[in-house]
Design a protein around this nucleic acid. Structure first.
Length: 588
RNA sequence: CGGGGUGUAGCUUAGCCUGGUAGAGCGCCUGGUUUGGGACCAGGAGGUCGUAGGUUCGAAUCCUAUCGCCCCGACCA
């Protein structure tokens, strides 16, 4: 048991000016964290207790799924990362560490980086540790600090430069095994979020720079989230917007009958979809082909979309390039023969087709019959363009951004969108890292095979804030029982009077024996201050001792999340509290 | 890194436009009156007005540079 006067909790009446969202304000006001700099926070004693509880629940649920805890260094030799498959993409977010006194006057290059994640560390480790199929599968995890030089830290712990993350890495002999490991983790995540009292939905996600074959994100629905979740309640479909698809294009769609031969027409000054929609051309956006030029690992390629569709850049990841970016006008003209605004992919119209790494078309362009596209000649477009007959397409794919209202790929009902906070992510990696680092094992036929990997993350500190974002009211935080820094606060109204103080201690130890963490507010403050503070820091159960209640021979129990006050005669208080606490644990 | 904003006491801020003694509320300290939802009275401590230059008799205020922080975008747990 802790007493407020000996513990350290400092609450603020006003929110700091740099906090904008509810959970960030409450983090500061309730004294959960204090800021050092952008994205850098001290976890105050109260906040640390929450972190430890979240971590412990995470640990327990992972262990149920047979994951094994270890601890890896957070200073990584740069060479380790250079050997890995994503140095080029990942170096941007890594803090570099100078090798202090060593090599003075020689290399100015940093020799270490602060660990943003640990695939590059664990894979070589496991390569040395495990050589036999008998030792597989294995799943290692740690709960530790991560360092990422986020370009823009924001919203307190939501995107910090130093943060606490659970990261796990599974190694399997076979692909089927890896899938099993993946879903074991998905289940562990679901149990974890349920236990900490957070609604987190698993949504299909893009694999991003991590690579790998499939992936789910765990999202906490919240207005302030960074991601759009596309979903349909009825079918259960849920995907990050970066990944979401819709049933816009029927699989059995037949090509429209060409209305005639392609013909060029002059469109002086027309370089936008909108301009072509206007008179005198009046070609609606869904009858235009939009031709975008990107650079994939140094080579240009084309993406063809419907005029009124938007490219979802993340979907270009499926093309297999390590780095992609939009091409500049200077890069475009020599290849296509025209400036942006007059581009197209009609066979024969591309100036230098051999320079292209491919022409990738979104499925939705198949909805266009006798459309219009650029002539690859400034100031000209062509009409009567038909997909199969006229366009030189390397392959079709899903590249467009889904819009709310489009048909669900599962049941055809309209899709909806909502914002979410990404609190966890799981990836089935495959052999991307094991190949690079030579992580192989020997099977029972003495044959060598690459281990099949998965990797998994939960943003522990971000989850802490997501809990607040999801569970608060105008008076403050409402901690779920399982992660509350203290489950019970005993508000002692007359701390200097011996009898009530003794009663508080007695009831505190009763609650503790039932398993609760108890805080006694023994400050010489007016009752109003104590009630306000108890609400602000969000302790689930408040027991008030003293004042008019005690005069009437009762103590009072009040749940933070409820309105009513339960009066209990002093004589029955101990038994009642023990029962209530046990009940709360049973329900948590 | 692009766009926008902002920096005055631990927190919230007024003053800046139109240069002339740096002010208030909360919090903190002392004393008193209070005591069931952030009390009241009296007294007190706390500021090189982000930093560095410049203009000026005189700069929180005007100018320049720089740094920090916040918001929107690209990226992420």
């Amino acid at each position: 048991m802790k007493t407020w006067s000996k513990f350290h909790i400092s609450t603020l009446r006003d929110s700091p000016a740099d906090a904008e969202i509810a959970s960030h304000k409450l983090l500061m006001r309730a004294g959960i964290v204090r800021k050092l700099g952008g994205g850098l926070y001290t976890y105050m004693p109260l906040g640390l207790r929450v972190m430890q509880k979240i971590s412990q629940i995470c640990r327990e649920e992972l262990e149920v799924s047979d994951a094994i805890e270890l601890w890896m260094p957070h200073i990584h030799p740069v060479e380790t990362w250079e050997q890995g498959p994503r140095w080029a993409a990942a170096r941007e977010i890594m803090f570099r560490v100078d090798n202090a006194g060593a090599n003075k006057g020689r290399s100015r290059e940093p020799e270490f980086v602060l660990g943003p994640t640990h695939e590059e560390i664990i894979t070589p480790l496991v390569k040395n540790e495990i050589t036999s199929y008998r030792d597989l599968p294995k799943n290692f995890f740690q709960i530790a600090t991560k360092f990422r030089n986020e370009i823009r830290p924001r919203f307190g712990l939501m995107r910090a430069r130093e943060f606490v993350m659970m990261d796990a890495y599974s190694f399997d002999a076979t692909d089927e095994g890896a899938v099993k490991s993946y879903f074991a983790m998905k289940d562990a995540y679901a149990r974890f979020f349920k236990r900490i009292g957070v609604t987190a939905i698993a949504v299909e996600a893009d694999t991003g720079v991590m690579g790998g074959s499939f992936s789910h994100e765990f999202m906490v629905p919240a207005e302030i989230g960074d991601d759009d979740v596309i979903y349909n309640e009825a079918s259960g479909y849920a995907a990050n917007r970066e990944k979401a698809t819709s049933a816009l294009v029927p699989a059995d769609l037949a090509d429209a009958a060409p209305a005639g031969a392609i013909e060029e027409f002059a469109t002086p000054g027309v370089i936008t979809i909108a301009a072509l929609e206007a008179a005198p051309y009046s070609v609606s956006g869904d009858r235009q082909f939009k031709t975008l030029v990107y650079i994939g690992d140094g080579k240009p390629f084309l993406v063809i979309l419907r005029g009124n569709d938007e490219l979802e850049e993340a979907k270009l990841g499926s093309l297999g390039f390590t780095l992609t970016r939009a091409a500049t006008p200077e890069e475009i003209e020599p290849v296509l023969g025209a400036k942006p605004g007059s581009l197209g992919a009609v066979k024969g119209s591309i100036k230098d087709p051999s320079a292209l790494a491919g022409v990738f078309a979104d499925h939705a362009i198949r909805l266009i019959g006798n459309g219009v596209t650029g002539a690859n000649k400034d100031g000209f477009h062509v009409r009567n363009v038909n997909v199969t007959r006229d366009l030189a397409i390397t392959r079709f794919g899903d590249f467009r951004r889904v819009r709310p209202g489009e048909p669900d790929p599962k049941n055809g009902q309209p899709l909806q969108v909502k914002r979410g906070i990404e609190v966890g992510h799981i990836f089935k990696l495959g052999t991307k890292y094991s190949e690079k680092f030579g992580a192989v094992y020997t099977d029972d036929q003495k044959q060598s095979h690459l281990m099949v990997m998965g990797c998994y993350g939960i943003g522990i500190s971000r989850t802490l804030q997501a809990v607040i974002e999801q569970s608060h009211d105008n008076d403050g935080i409402i901690w779920p029982w399982s992660v509350a820094p203290f489950q019970v606060i005993i508000t002692l109204l007359d701390p200097s009077v011996p009898e009530p103080a003794e009663l508080a201690k007695k009831l505190a130890s009763v609650a503790e024996q039932a398993g609760a963490d108890v805080l006694i507010d023994d400050r010489e403050e007016r009752p109003g201050v104590k009630f306000k503070d108890a609400d602000l820091i969000g302790i689930p159960l408040r027991i008030t001792i003293g004042g008019k209640g005690l005069l009437a021979g009762v103590i009072e129990l009040k749940w933070r999340a409820k309105k009513d006050v339960i009066k209990v005669p002093v004589a029955e208080a101990a038994d009642h509290i023990a029962a209530v606490v046990r009940d709360a644990f049973a329900q948590a």
